[in-house]
C-alpha cells in the first residue's frame, strides 16, 4: 500500500494549553517499502504513527491512502514498544487476534497463528501468557501477531528499544526475514540512528518539536547490512550525516532536561 502525508500538522490541546507536536510533515511511502523514521525523543514520532494508523485525527493536512480495497485485510497494524499483547490471552490467542477480528474461522485462524509462532521461534511458548515471556519473546509475539493479521501495512513504534543489544540484533534479522517473505509496506519508527540505517530502504530524519521531516535519505545498499564490517563506508557516512543533523537537537533537549 502506498500513501502520502500532505502538510500534516498536529496540535495537542490538553486543559487549555496548546502543544504543537507536528508541523507541516510531508512525505510519501510506496508499496512494499521499508521506511524508517528517526528522530530524538519527544519529536512526535509516535504521534505521526498514530495519525497514519487512524488512531488520531490530524489538526490540519491529510494522509492520502492508495490501497486498492482488496479483501478484508486491515489497512494497517501497529506494533507497540512494549506491553502491547493482551495480558489475558495466551501467545496463541494473541497472535490469532487479527484473524479472529477479521472473522476468520477459529481453526483456520489458529493454524495461521501457529505457523507465525513457529516462524518467530515461539513454538514452545504458544500456551504461555505474556507475563511469562521475556521482553524479547514478547516482542517476537507482537510481530507474529502483526503479520498474522496480514495487514497492508505495518506501523512499528520503537518495537525493539526495550531490548538488550544482542536480542535486538537477532530480532532485526528475523523481522527482515519475515518482511522479505511477505513484502509488506513498513513504517518503522526509532530513535536509534544505527537501527534506522540498517533496516530501512529510506530514512526520514525528524527534528522538532514541533516535529517535521527534515531530510529523506535513500539507502540503496543490499541487506543484511553491517556497520562493523569494513564493507560499508557509505553507511558510516550516512550515520555521521544524520548524527550531525540531530546533534544540535539532542543537545538542546538534553539541556532542557538538565
Amino acid at each position: 500500500m502506498n500513501f502520502k502525508c500532505q502538510e500534516l500538522s498536529k496540535v495537542y490541546s490538553p486543559d487549555n494549553r496548546t502543544i504543537p507536536v507536528l508541523e507541516n510533515v510531508n512525505f510519501s511511502v510506496t508499496e512494499g517499502e521499508f521506511v524508517c523514521i528517526v528522530g530524538p525523543s519527544g519529536c512526535g514520532k509516535t504521534t505521526l504513527l498514530r495519525l497514519i494508523a487512524g488512531l488520531l485525527e490530524p489538526t490540519s493536512g491529510q494522509i492520502c491512502f492508495n490501497a486498492g480495497e482488496n479483501r478484508k485485510q486491515p489497512r494497517n497494524v501497529m506494533v507497540f514498544q512494549e506491553h502491547g499483547l493482551f495480558p489475558w490471552m495466551t501467545v496463541l490467542d494473541n497472535v490469532a487476534f487479527g484473524p479472529e477480528m477479521q472473522g476468520t474461522g477459529k481453526h483456520e485462524g489458529r493454524e495461521l497463528a501457529r505457523s507465525l509462532i513457529i516462524q518467530t521461534g515461539l513454538a514452545d511458548f504458544s500456551q504461555c501468557y505474556p507475563h511469562q515471556l521475556s521482553t524479547g519473546m514478547h516482542q517476537r509475539a507482537a510481530i507474529a501477531r502483526a503479520f498474522a493479521a496480514d495487514p497492508r501495512m505495518l506501523l512499528m513504534d520503537e518495537p525493539f528499544s526495550a531490548l538488550d543489544a544482542q536480542t535486538k540484533l537477532l530480532l532485526r534479522e528475523e523481522l527482515l526475514r519475515i518482511w522479505k517473505d511477505r513484502r509488506k509496506t513498513v513504517v518503522y519508527v526509532t530513535h536509534d540512528i544505527e537501527e534506522a540505517i540498517l533496516l530501512g530502504d529510506r530514512v526520514l530524519v525528524m527534528t522538532g518539536r514541533p516535529g517535521t521531516v527534515r531530510e529523506d535519505i535513500p539507502i540503496p545498499i543490499p541487506r543484511p547490512r553491517n556497520l562493523t564490517d569494513g564493507d560499508y563506508p557509505r553507511l558510516r557516512e550516512i550515520k555521521q550525516h544524520i548524527w550531525k543533523m540531530l546533534e544540535h537537537e539532542v543537545r538542546q533537549s538534553l539541556s532542557r532536561y538538565r
Binding site: L55, M78, F86, F97, M101
Partner: peptide, 11 residues
C-alpha cells in the same frame, strides 16, 4: 493501549 490495539485490529 488495549482498546487502541483492539481498535487497530478492527474489533
Amino acid at each position: 493501549l488495549y482498546f487502541e490495539v483492539a481498535r487497530n485490529y478492527g474489533a
